[in-house]
Computed example of a mutant assay.
Amino acid sequence: MMKNSLITIAFLAVSVSAAAQAGDTFSTLDTDNNGSISLAESKVLPALMAKFKELDTDGNGELSAQEFASFKSE
């Protein structure tokens, strides 16, 4: 049972990563659908994670759609 759970988690992580790289859209990265991208959610795109603090202009620890748009326009 534990092995199946780990396989499922690994598969989902790869799927999310592939989807993010394919589309890198805000909604794809916002996996919990709360309207923002957390640092944890940004980890699927290393380039986004590297610029996270710079993009988080209001310093709330999350990227809004507007803050993410700055990343997309680079």
Rank of each mutant, 00 (worst) to 15 (best):
residue 23 G to P: 00
residue 38 S to A: 10
residue 58 D to I: 11
residue 8 T to R: 15
residue 1 M to W: 08
residue 2 M to H: 13
residue 17 S to M: 07
residue 17 S to L: 05
residue 53 K to E: 10
residue 39 L to A: 14
residue 1 M to D: 15
residue 38 S to G: 12
residue 28 T to K: 04
residue 68 F to I: 02
residue 27 S to Y: 08
residue 25 T to I: 03
residue 8 T to G: 06
residue 3 K to F: 14
residue 48 L to P: 01
residue 29 L to H: 06
residue 24 D to Y: 07
residue 25 T to C: 05
residue 72 K to W: 02
residue 47 A to H: 01
residue 53 K to I: 03
residue 33 N to Y: 12
residue 35 G to I: 00
residue 55 L to I: 03
residue 20 A to R: 03
residue 71 F to T: 00
residue 5 S to A: 12
residue 6 L to E: 14
residue 42 S to G: 04
residue 37 I to Y: 00
residue 12 L to Q: 02
residue 47 A to Q: 02
residue 23 G to W: 00
residue 33 N to T: 14
residue 56 D to P: 08
residue 3 K to T: 11
residue 35 G to P: 02
residue 21 Q to Y: 08
residue 53 K to T: 11
residue 30 D to N: 08
residue 46 P to R: 06
residue 39 L to P: 05
residue 43 K to H: 12
residue 50 A to D: 15
residue 24 D to S: 06
residue 46 P to I: 06
residue 44 V to M: 06
residue 24 D to E: 07
residue 59 G to C: 10
residue 32 D to T: 09
residue 36 S to Y: 12
residue 70 S to F: 05
residue 70 S to L: 11
residue 27 S to P: 07
residue 5 S to Q: 13
residue 62 E to T: 14
residue 34 N to V: 12
residue 67 E to D: 03
residue 62 E to G: 03
residue 46 P to Y: 05
residue 60 N to K: 09
residue 22 A to P: 02
residue 31 T to V: 14
residue 31 T to L: 08
residue 2 M to V: 13
residue 61 G to D: 12
residue 18 A to Y: 09
residue 4 N to G: 01
residue 63 L to E: 04
residue 67 E to G: 01
residue 35 G to A: 01
residue 23 G to V: 01
residue 17 S to W: 10
residue 29 L to M: 09
residue 61 G to E: 13
residue 43 K to D: 05
residue 25 T to F: 06
residue 56 D to T: 07
residue 51 K to I: 01
residue 29 L to A: 05
residue 30 D to Y: 03
residue 34 N to Y: 05
residue 25 T to S: 14
residue 42 S to H: 06
residue 11 F to G: 02
residue 21 Q to E: 06
residue 6 L to S: 11
residue 45 L to A: 01
residue 65 A to V: 12
residue 50 A to I: 11
residue 11 F to S: 12
residue 67 E to I: 02
residue 31 T to M: 07
residue 25 T to D: 11
residue 64 S to W: 10
residue 9 I to D: 08
residue 69 A to P: 00
residue 6 L to Q: 14
residue 27 S to A: 15
residue 66 Q to V: 07
residue 20 A to H: 04
